[in-house]
Design a protein around this nucleic acid. Structure first.
Lengths: 129, 129
DNA sequence: CTGTATCCTCTCTGATACTG
DNA sequence: CAGTATCAGAGAGGATACAG
């Protein structure tokens, strides 16, 4: 995170919104990352197996999907249920914490989405001026 | 955004959450970016001049702050008021749209922040298993 | 089927130095 | 004061091949 902070400054001195944001930065990066957002949104609809999720999230590579799911599982937002069959059968679901977060995230995205026309106008103005 | 989409597929066919998220992806990246979050949070407290903001957001480089502010200004979230004096006096404020968005963003960050302990436990469990 | 491992490219980021 | 220009390192992301 912030170079030279967090590691060096005692917790008692860390108090304002910037340092708090710094603490949650890594989590926020996982959930707002390109594929993190889409994985959470997909799983908030229904559970998915790996390749089904990969087809649902069009354009994601195996590597990035695996990486994304591992990060979200490690953070406790996604639950991975592997049945030791042959061939392997793995199902991904959201944990309660993951569902709560995904809901808020989707709400933010929908708000941003509603802003798209206004943002496009602003960009046009900016690029002209 | 998603390679091979957006540019190639007519708008009428783009409808689900993934494509919508794709549309707002660039905006979301600006506002959830490391320095984007902090700039919006700082400006939601009060207006700032460039170097004051740089001191407030400890650890940001001139280059990244300039880049961040330009992106947010172009998107219409930040207003830049330059008084043509010598030396230059430039003040950054949030637009109404920026204030609304910053509020929601801060709410999300605070929720994520409240999850930090639970996430840390989840990580410990994951790393042990 | 569900991933890992490897390689390679490209962007993001920060330090440094310079301009109006 | 408020930036821009340039450079180099680190990491994100993707294509491909392979493993259990």
């Amino acid at each position: 995170m912030a170079p030279g902070r967090g590691d060096l400054i005692p917790d008692e001195l860390i108090a304002d919104v910037f340092d708090r944001a710094c603490h949650s930065r890594e989590i926020l990066e996982h959930v707002t990352a390109r594929w993190g957002v889409l994985a959470l949104a997909a799983l908030s609809e229904q559970p998915f197996r790996f390749n089904a999720l990969r087809r649902k999230i069009d354009g994601v590579s195996e590597k990035m999907l695996a990486q994304t799911l591992q990060a979200l599982e490690r953070d406790g937002f996604v639950h991975r249920e592997a049945r030791p069959t042959i061939p392997p059968h793995v199902e991904y679901t959201l944990t309660p914490m993951g569902r709560e977060l995904a809901g808020r995230l989707v709400a933010l995205i929908e708000h941003v989405e509603s802003l798209v026309p206004e943002v496009e106008q602003a960009r046009t103005r900016y690029d002209r001026g």
